[in-house]
Simulated scan of single mutants.
Amino acid sequence: MIRKTLNTVALSAALCLSALPSQALETVVYQLDWLPGGDKAPVYVAQQKGFFKELGLEVKIAQGKGSTDAITKIAAGHADVGRSDIVALLAAKASNTIPVTGVMNVFSEAPYAFFTVKGRGVESIQDLAEKTVASSPFTSSNLFFPYVVTKNGLEESGIRHVKANPGSLAPMLLHGRTDAITSWVTDTVTIQTEAEKIGLQVNIFPWYGAGLNIYSSSVIANDQFLKDRPDVAKRFLQALKKGMIYTWQHPEEAGEMVHQVVPEVDPVVAANTIMSIRQLVHNPSSEAHGLGNFEKNKLAETWRLIALAQDIDPAKLDPESAISRDFVEAN
């Protein structure tokens, strides 16, 4: 009778324990700065591999319409954290009080590049003299165009710089309506694929190899979120950083994970994009100062060139005030 009673008690206790809800996950809203793709893979990888869940987080991902859009939504509290070009954040904070802070770097090299068609007379940046270069009117690369061309021994006045719809840039280049285009390195796979369809090959001249030493795409966060939930912010960035590492260790799997969440993203294109932009993430700068970390001198140079490009008094902003190193573990 005693044994039967004990067995009954044990069974009842087990049933009660199994009926208890698991500890609730804390929700974090993550704002993209553009459409999903290979360059946005780390957050999808961290989500699909369970890195967020392991640290007690449920992450909701929202699509974006550019860095300014992402900054605006995060500042308004519609998202807790997200991606943005640090160039846009520093410029915005120089002229306005914005409750958003940079907390982790993603692209520690400038993502811009000149693209030309091989065999058409532009085989180096110096060959752009007296040529036509097309770019989107909205891209932040326009800010640094004068600096890059003069840094490479050219006169800006000697280059015809025209603006065109972003969707028409690659066709313009491939069909000979411009000698070169400026675009992000993240567009490499798309441009190369279109070129190969008509039997062409392209040259790519990244600006990080042409003297533009700046930070770019970064993780930013709402100041109130950082103040009220610092531990959540640290756990989120820990999981995201793990996703970054996994993404470039396993690009094909990472591309497939983006596709699983966003079916319209081609997994092969996503994987190829991840591989094509490896140098933006894993490079001498990130190796020397740690993946995701903002190095003081490079951040200062980033701000110096932004101020120079936009004719802003550099004294209007201390770039150190725009970022925080309190939420990412040192490598």
Rank of each mutant, 00 (worst) to 15 (best):
I220M: 11
H78A: 15
K93H: 09
N152G: 07
A221V: 09
V28A: 02
Y147K: 02
H259E: 02
H250D: 10
T186R: 11
A322K: 07
F145D: 04
T193V: 01
S95N: 05
Q279F: 01
A110P: 09
T97D: 15
V162W: 00
Y246G: 00
E295S: 11
V202Y: 00
D69E: 14
N165K: 10
P284C: 10
N222T: 05
V219R: 07
W184R: 07
D179V: 01
W207F: 14
G64A: 12
Q31H: 08
A10N: 01
I98L: 14
Q47L: 10
G102K: 03
R235T: 06
G37V: 01
A113R: 08
K151L: 04
P284Q: 12
K93D: 12
P267R: 04
Q201P: 04
D187A: 15
N152L: 03
P137V: 04
Q23G: 11
G77I: 11
E253W: 03
V262Y: 02
A300V: 04
F294N: 07
S12M: 11
H289Y: 15
Q249L: 09
N96G: 01
A24C: 07
Q63F: 11
F205M: 11
A210T: 01
S84C: 09
T5M: 00
S135T: 15
N203M: 12
D231Q: 14
F51G: 05
K316I: 02
A92P: 02
A113V: 12
S168N: 15
T68K: 15
M275Y: 00
L35M: 06
A330D: 12
L226D: 05
L317Y: 09
I74V: 10
N213Y: 00
A70E: 12
E58N: 14
G158F: 02
A79I: 10
A88Y: 07
F145T: 09
F145G: 04
R83A: 07
Y147A: 06
